[in-house]
Write a protein that binds this DNA or RNA. Structure first.
Length: 214
DNA sequence: CCGGTTCCAGTTTTACATCA
DNA sequence: TTGATGTAAAACTGGAACCG
C-alpha cells in the first residue's frame, strides 16, 4: 500500500485529532463502551428505536454535497479542524464528512485511472497505425528496390552484348560499391525475412485490434 | 509496546432509477 | 403498479503507518 503521499499530513494529524473527538463521544454515548465499532445492523432502522425519518435518510442533500465538493476542489485532504468546521456547517457528523472525503478520493482516483487508461489506449492505437503505415511503406520501397534491381540486371545483361569499354566496367564496379549500403538502409543486414513478409499480417492484426476496442 | 488516529482498498448496505 | 435488477453513494472493515 502506498501511504507516501500522505506522510506529511499524517505527521501532524494526530495532534489535530484528539482522542476525545466529537464522534468518539457520540459512540460512547450510544453505549459502546470499548472500541468504537460502527457496525450497522443489516437494515437501517434509523437508530435505536427504529425511527425518525431524518435518521433514516442517508443521502446527503444537494446543498451538502455542493459544499463538500467545493471543499474537495480546494484540497483533497481533510484536516481535523476543517472536518469539524464542515461538519458543523453542514449539520453532519464529522465522521460522515471524513467518510465522504474518503469515498470522494477513491472516486477521484478511479476517474484519474480511467483517464490515464484512455490516453494510453489512444496513444497505443496511434502507434499501431503508424507502425502499420511504416510497414506498408517498407513494402512499397522493397518493391521499388526489386524493380530497380531487375532493371540493373537487365541493363547489365544487355551491356554484356555491347563491346565492353571503360564506362561499362566502371558502372559495374559502382553498382557493387553501392549495393551493400543500399541494402543496409532497408535493414536487410541483420534482419530476418519476417520484417518484410510479415507486415500484412501485422497490419491486419493492428486494424482488427483497433476495431475491436474503439 | 500500546493506544489512538489517519489513510486506503475492498466490501456491504442503502437509495434510487429503469425496465419488463 | 410492482418486483427484479443495476448503479452510485454512504458506511463499514481490516490492515498499515505514524505518533506520543
Amino acid at each position: 500500500m502506498n501511504h507516501r503521499p500522505f506522510q506529511d499530513n499524517m505527521m501532524f494529524i494526530p495532534q489535530l485529532y484528539p482522542a476525545d473527538a466529537p464522534y468518539t463521544q457520540i459512540i460512547a454515548q450510544q453505549g459502546e463502551s470499548k472500541k468504537p465499532k460502527r457496525r450497522r445492523s443489516k437494515k437501517n432502522k434509523g437508530g435505536e428505536n427504529g425511527a425518525s425519518e431524518a435518521n433514516r435518510k442517508r443521502k446527503l442533500s444537494a446543498e451538502q454535497v455542493n459544499l463538500l465538493e467545493q471543499n474537495f476542489g480546494n484540497e483533497h485532504k481533510l484536516e481535523s479542524e476543517r472536518k469539524d468546521r464542515l461538519a458543523l456547517e453542514l449539520g453532519l457528523d464529522p465522521r460522515q464528512v471524513a467518510v465522504w472525503f474518503q469515498n470522494r478520493r477513491a472516486r477521484w482516483k478511479n476517474k484519474k485511472l480511467e483517464e490515464e487508461y484512455s490516453n494510453l489506449k489512444k496513444s497505443h492505437e496511434a502507434n499501431l497505425l503508424e507502425k502499420c503505415r511504416l510497414e506498408t511503406e517498407v513494402l512499397k520501397l522493397k518493391d521499388q528496390l526489386s524493380e530497380a534491381e531487375k532493371e540493373i540486371q537487365r541493363l547489365l545483361e544487355s551491356g554484356d552484348r555491347v563491346p565492353s569499354n571503360s564506362s561499362s566496367s566502371s558502372q559495374s564496379q559502382s553498382m557493387e560499391a553501392v549495393d551493400p549500403p543500399f541494402f543496409g538502409v532497408f535493414g536487410v543486414d541483420g534482419y530476418d525475412d519476417d520484417v518484410f513478409y510479415g507486415p500484412e499480417t501485422h497490419c491486419m492484426n493492428a486494424l482488427e485490434w483497433i476495431n475491436l476496442y474503439m
